[in-house]
Design a protein around this nucleic acid. Structure first.
Lengths: 344, 344
DNA sequence: GTGAAAGCGCTAACAA
DNA sequence: TTGTTAGCGCTTTCAC
């Protein structure tokens, strides 16, 4: 039983006393605020180091900033999101801002709202919402309370910044590539979207729409299977596709995690890739590159997306009145061994 | 430009005024504290709902609890950790506690310390540290400041509770299974551990040691390859194993994510599983179960581990003086199609 | 350039 | 049972 009462926390008062200055001075040094002489800064810094002082975020929250940024990721099992997070944290390293993640909100709109509220209530200085499903009015309401960047969702707003990849082009890249290889029957597995108001903004819906448009542009018949952007979704989607009377010669999975499930279903069905059927994914996660999978995939540069979101957020925290920015990144296609011409 | 200034936040004072009671009364109702009549509770609840009041966690942090639990996960790309997180959040749902995640600390001890400090500074009521790499003295120091549960790390402490799976037994289950199938040369891929003080506590080290002991018990020669508990680690480890003058007939990967990389390397090398070589993993993540992978794996019930950690933490938050608990869960082996007798 | 003092929203003694 | 009030640790006017 180490029940020695926890030692009282070092506060700004202790530091001030130790450095023989006022608490105001310490506060100013902490925030690099105007009006501190080099001599005082040195004294205060020394006291801080000596005492091992760390500011109490709760107390800061009451008056100023908490130097905390909240990030909401939709699904920890999708390997694309860690890519975004890496970009975020890389950009935020050494800025003094701390990132905290809200647990994934796969559970729906209500769970998502709870997480964002929790972040706001905890005085976060800014929010990064990755592919949120909340209605746009709700996002704007959030953005009015706290600087917000919405990632991976289309639709402009004057309340928040956005970073997204051009999913229409991404889908077109895949269809063009496959059609160019001679495929005529290309199936697409999408993440099923029921809510009509979201339909126009969610990346999954736009990819599906881009796929349809690109198919028609090639004079081909779209063939969409609706499951989800999960491994299971890919697995079940592919199984469904394999029951088609006329089997497609290529499958465009809406996300790499979906493609993984697709590849599993194909292996199980004894279909060789790409000899028997071609497969392409989206996100170019590290899964696509390594090993025998060697998946053709659309690269939307998750790391760059994350870094851009972080930059925009810091910008906005510094100046809440600047006009909002909408960054749309151009995806590229990384062709690997999972796609080839259709079987003879 | 929606530059309408954000509306002033509703505070406890607003609620009190609206309900025609004191702020104390509101505070008590919020915390289900002793000494509130049903009539007052109703009045206050009504006012809270009507005004849409939500407590300010920063202000709470200054006096009492923040109803926030910080969770540190080591690696978001390892599918086992979401399993633990699911268990945690399931248990914490409707308790009024909010979970926030610290970004993964793959970057080492210093990064990990920064995350835990950040969580403490933000007034978290409790911490759940999953497979932390900090020295034990540091963990105890943390635990003295805030209720802490350490997950997936061995070694008892009187300062924090622990939840871990019996990794020695887990490794033995795999070796016994493979040896029972007739394998004599079983290789193991471990997560390389350099720090000698950690060696005795980290699950990866214990799995490797358990493997060695079990091998010797069967009169077999251990063969350990040191990489990391990542997909790349598995891929590279397997490649290394395949260059052995005498190739093992089975590979025991220290984690499912490692096994995934192993399977990729084997596929690439044209080796069939299990006809050419057997593969077993650890964690029984959902990757193991679905599809053609069908990986034999040790089930350490991640969901249950998470739920147990949450329970212990709530317990400790309620009573910081109770003796610490050490929960050791017994793993089981889930045999699937990736293991069979050695090739003739 | 520096410091005294007010107050952020909440909780917990204590008083009524 | 209910209310008054004193802070928690910090930031921020506003004097000096």
């Amino acid at each position: 039983m180490d029940s020695s009462a926890p030692p009282r926390r070092i506060t700004i008062v202790d530091v001030a006393r130790h450095a023989r200055v006022s608490t105001t001075a310490v506060s100013k040094v902490l925030r690099n605020a105007y009006g501190t002489s080099p001599a005082m800064r040195a004294k205060v810094q020394a006291a801080i180091t000596e005492l091992g002082y760390r500011p109490h975020a709760g107390a800061r929250a009451m008056r100023g900033q908490t130097y905390t940024i909240g990030v909401m990721l939709p699904d920890l099992r999708n390997p694309f999101f860690p890519d975004i997070l890496d970009g975020l944290t890389d950009h935020l390293r050494d800025t003094g801002y701390q990132v905290l993640l809200g647990p994934s909100h796969c559970n729906g709109e209500e769970a998502e709202a709870k997480v964002t509220e929790a972040m706001i209530d905890r005085g976060m200085d800014g929010l990064i919402l990755v592919a949120p499903i909340a209605p746009r009015t709700h996002l704007e309401q959030i953005a009015r309370l706290v600087p917000t960047v919405v990632v991976g969702r289309h639709g402009h707003s004057t309340a928040y910044d956005t970073v997204a990849d051009d999913d229409t082009t991404g889908a077109k890249l895949v269809v063009d590539h496959l059609a160019g290889l001679g495929h005529r029957h290309i199936a697409h597995i999408e993440h099923h979207e029921t809510n009509p108001t979201r339909l126009a903004e969610m990346p999954n819906a736009i990819r599906a729409e881009g796929y349809r448009a690109a198919m028609r542009a090639h004079g081909l018949e779209p063939d969409v299977v609706s499951t989800s952007y999960t491994r299971e979704g890919g697995y079940l989607g592919a199984q469904q596709i394999l029951t088609r009377p006329r089997r497609p010669s290529a499958i465009f999975a809406g996300a790499d995690i979906v493609a993984i499930g697709v590849l599993e279903a194909l292996t199980e069905a004894g279909l060789a890739v790409p000899a028997g059927i071609s497969v392409a994914g989206y996100d170019n996660t590290n899964f696509a590159a390594l090993g025998p999978i060697s998946l053709t995939s659309v690269d939307q540069a998750g790391h760059h997306i994350g870094a851009t979101a972080a930059r925009l957020l810091l910008d906005r925290i510094a100046d809440r009145t600047r006009p909002t920015a909408q960054v749309k990144l151009s995806p590229t296609l990384v062709v690997r061994r999972s796609t080839a011409g259709p079987p003879a």
